[in-house]
């Protein structure tokens, strides 16, 4: 046995949001090492768009709210900055326009309607196919150099379940009053 082991490290961020009926959205960001062991977690208080925001943002409301506002806040708050942010919500990809950190959406092998995902904007990483922001194709090249740090069959969607559970627990114990 030895003490601490110096090795190439990859920090992963897992970002999810949860809608609370009547109170808006909360978001959570879990930072783990490349094996999924948790290092830091931050979550927001509920935020609800007002009526003018709903009208004026229109279709861009959720990308702004979930990606820029919630995602951006969480990314600022964490002390351990991730090398990659993984989410399951395509709206959160908007976060990439406000940070230098690659943001990816973990996809099922096929879209719900059975149409295979566009091959040009995705790549396989760990056990998942990841979708990148269309405006940042360079992210795929950056991640390709770190592929070896993630086991080929790693389940990158599992930590997102933990974030959702943690958010639900937080809402239940803190915000439900």
């Amino acid at each position: 046995m030895s003490g601490s082991v110096k090795s190439e490290q990859l920090r992963l961020g897992f970002l999810e949001t949860l809608e609370i009926e009547g109170r808006g959205y909360v978001g959570g960001l879990l930072i783990t090492n490349n094996f999924g062991r948790p290092l830091e977690f931050q979550c927001t208080t509920p935020v609800k768009p007002n009526r003018p925001q709903e009208i004026l943002y229109g279709g861009s409301l959720l990308p702004w709210l979930l990606g820029e506002l919630i995602g951006g806040t969480l990314l600022e708050r964490v002390s351990i900055k991730p090398d990659l942010v993984v989410t399951s919500d395509p709206d959160i990809l908007e976060l990439r326009n406000h940070t230098q950190i690659p943001v990816v959406c973990a996809l099922a092998e096929q879209e719900p309607d059975g149409i295979p995902v566009t091959p040009g904007s995705t790549m396989r990483f760990g056990g998942q196919r990841l979708r990148f922001h269309d405006a940042h194709p360079v992210d795929a090249d950056r991640l390709a150099g770190q592929r070896h740090l993630i086991p080929d069959q790693a389940d990158l969607t599992e930590p997102l379940e933990r974030v959702r559970e943690a958010l639900a627990e937080t809402v239940r114990t803190v915000f439900a009053r």
Binding site: T44, T45, V47, V78
Partner: peptide, 8 residues
């Protein structure tokens, strides 16, 4: 936005 944090 206010945040709640936990460092493990």
């Amino acid at each position: 936005l206010k945040c709640i944090g936990l460092t493990l």
